[in-house]
């Protein structure tokens, strides 16, 4: 058989084709449509299948740990490979605290970068700055880890931590968070490294969504005498909130799951301490550290259970983000 007749040639345009040929061609097109539909559906279903398969293998692998420890696994702070007693709270705490610190510093800075790039930056600087932000996003996380371990942690221990101890450390209530041996390792260092890592993600998403705001909206606001800040806060942000929240969630996703960079600087100690200077551990770093040499069945199973917990946390974060967006869109048009 010759090639499938699918395109009308110039000759055919001049000489109208017969009914029969037209019917044949349309049949072929229907087959093509059908195949394309099924193939693309198959690809889409593959994603779903993968998700279910990963979920199932995690649950299956985690089963021994959950059978042994029950829900106490989530609230126990023991992590003892020798006595085969495992609990996830240390790792969950470390993951959440470092991610929170990452967003605490990352979101405002990213917002600033995006505002500058879209509203204030002179045109000749826009492109190089934008490229620099995107390049930062492309750096592999192990590089951040090494940079954190060899340069940032020593600098932090010598110049920043002593200052923090003398100032914030002396405050009532929160002082305990900034005390302890200035080693340069721990939750605060890990959180700060993470914030550097999430900034390019959040900033580039924010910049992209800020740029799609119709110029007429902004110009109307400027025309009414609004300041740049008022335009950002009252026009651009409400218009782009879905994208902004999406960008923040993307950053949070990266912070929660980040493995190597955190492993290098968090100090890898299974404990929960009020002080942000003391070494801790996160779910991803525990997995990276212990997976290769976990020999006991319960140890392995507990590590897989940790993976499941991380999966769950990311899922919950996504759901919260969706809910937030729904609430936001409900309020649309009412507030002034």
């Amino acid at each position: 058989m010759n090639a499938v007749p699918s395109e009308i040639t110039a000759k055919e345009m001049v000489q109208p084709i017969s009914q029969e040929a037209l019917a044949k061609r349309m049949r072929w097109q229907r087959v093509g449509d059908f195949v394309a539909h099924r193939v693309t559906m198959l690809f889409a279903l593959l994603v779903l299948l993968l998700l279910v398969a990963i979920m199932a293998s995690l649950v299956l692998g985690a089963l021994p740990a959950f059978q042994k420890f029950g829900f106490g696994f989530l609230s126990s702070t023991t992590w003892d490979p020798v006595g085969e007693e495992f609990g996830a709270l240390n790792a969950i705490y470390g993951t959440l605290v470092t991610s929170f610190i990452a967003l605490l510093f990352g979101v405002p800075v990213s917002f600033g970068i995006a505002v500058f790039l879209t509203e204030l930056c002179p045109n000749w600087l826009k492109r190089p700055m934008g490229v620099a932000v995107e390049l930062l996003a492309g750096i592999p996380s192990i590089i951040y880890g090494m940079w954190g371990l060899f340069f940032f942690a020593p600098f932090f221990a010598e110049h920043v931590q002593p200052v923090l101890m003398d100032t914030l450390g002396q405050l009532p209530y929160v002082g305990g968070m900034f005390q302890g041996a200035p080693m340069g390792l721990g939750t605060l260092t890990a959180g700060l490294i993470l914030s550097v890592m999430v900034i390019p993600f959040i900033a580039s998403v924010m910049r992209d969504v800020f740029e799609v705001v119709p110029a007429v909206l902004k110009e109307s606001a400027y025309g009414l005498g609004a300041t740049t800040w008022e335009v950002m806060w009252n026009v651009v942000l409400p218009y782009t909130k879905a994208g902004v929240v999406g960008g923040v969630m993307l950053g949070l996703g990266r912070a929660l799951g980040e493995t190597m960079a955190v492993t290098f600087v968090i100090g890898n100690a299974h404990n929960i301490d009020l002080s942000l200077f003391s070494p801790a551990t996160s779910i991803a770093s525990t997995l990276a550290n212990e997976f290769a040499e976990a020999s006991g069945e319960l140890h392995m199973s507990s590590l897989i259970a940790l993976g499941l917990v991380l999966f769950f946390i990311t899922f919950v974060v996504l759901v919260i983000a969706k809910l937030m967006l729904m609430r936001l869109s409900k309020g649309e048009g009412r507030s002034t």
Partner: peptide, 22 residues
């Protein structure tokens, strides 16, 4: 007790010989 990984009562953990050395 003893093992390839134990529940350390004190200190910080470095990854690999190079991590501890660093």
């Amino acid at each position: 007790g003893e093992g390839t990984a134990v529940s350390w009562p004190a200190g910080v953990g470095g990854k690999g010989n190079e991590g501890v050395a660093q």
